[in-house]
Amino acid sequence: MITAAQLRAARALLGIDQKALAELSSLSLPTIQRMEASDGVVRGNVDSLMKLIGALDAAGIEVIGERATSSGGGRGVRLKEPSP
């Protein structure tokens, strides 16, 4: 799963706009816009999500899930859980 915030951060790390991500993932610009406007986890059909994750992976982005460790050695970002 990928959140809207992770998607925006991935785009920022790649230095691309929504249109470029749409082209990389073979999705429409409105689809990317809807995904980024989501609240929390990105929703979409499985095919669209697979295309998105595949395009990010091919571009060098590793999506790190909550409480998951990173298998790569590159740089990344992650939000900490808020302190109680």
Results as ranks from 00 to 15, higher is better:
residue 77 V to R: 13
residue 66 E to Y: 09
residue 67 R to S: 06
residue 72 G to Y: 03
residue 73 G to A: 11
residue 49 L to A: 12
residue 49 L to N: 10
residue 62 E to R: 12
residue 68 A to F: 01
residue 60 G to F: 03
residue 75 R to S: 09
residue 68 A to M: 06
residue 44 G to R: 09
residue 50 M to Q: 15
residue 65 G to Y: 04
residue 59 A to C: 05
residue 53 I to L: 14
residue 56 L to E: 05
residue 77 V to M: 08
residue 61 I to E: 03
residue 73 G to K: 11
residue 67 R to H: 04
residue 48 S to K: 10
residue 63 V to F: 01
residue 75 R to L: 03
residue 48 S to T: 12
residue 65 G to S: 10
residue 54 G to A: 15
residue 73 G to T: 14
residue 42 V to E: 01
residue 58 A to N: 07
residue 48 S to N: 14
residue 51 K to T: 07
residue 71 S to M: 04
residue 62 E to W: 01
residue 72 G to E: 02
residue 71 S to V: 08
residue 50 M to G: 11
residue 53 I to E: 14
residue 45 N to G: 09
residue 69 T to E: 01
residue 49 L to E: 07
residue 68 A to S: 08
residue 67 R to M: 02
residue 50 M to N: 14
residue 77 V to K: 10
residue 77 V to G: 06
residue 61 I to F: 02
residue 67 R to N: 08
residue 72 G to K: 13
residue 71 S to I: 06
residue 72 G to V: 07
residue 71 S to H: 09
residue 75 R to G: 04
residue 53 I to K: 15
residue 59 A to V: 06
residue 60 G to M: 08
residue 54 G to D: 14
residue 72 G to Q: 08
residue 70 S to P: 00
residue 70 S to L: 00
residue 65 G to L: 09
residue 77 V to I: 14
residue 60 G to W: 03
residue 62 E to K: 10
residue 57 D to E: 13
residue 47 D to L: 07
residue 63 V to K: 05
residue 49 L to C: 11
residue 42 V to K: 02
residue 75 R to Q: 07
residue 52 L to R: 07
residue 77 V to L: 08
residue 44 G to K: 10
residue 49 L to M: 14
residue 42 V to C: 02
residue 69 T to V: 05
residue 70 S to D: 01
residue 71 S to G: 09
residue 69 T to P: 00
residue 52 L to V: 12
residue 72 G to F: 00
residue 48 S to I: 06
residue 64 I to F: 01
residue 76 G to P: 00
residue 48 S to A: 14
residue 62 E to L: 05
residue 70 S to F: 00
residue 47 D to H: 12
residue 77 V to Q: 11
residue 77 V to T: 14
residue 66 E to Q: 13
residue 50 M to R: 15
residue 49 L to P: 01
residue 47 D to T: 15
residue 53 I to D: 12
residue 44 G to A: 13
residue 42 V to G: 02
residue 74 G to M: 02
residue 46 V to H: 07
residue 48 S to P: 00
residue 43 R to S: 11
residue 46 V to D: 04
residue 63 V to E: 02
residue 76 G to L: 03
residue 46 V to N: 10
residue 54 G to P: 05
residue 42 V to T: 09
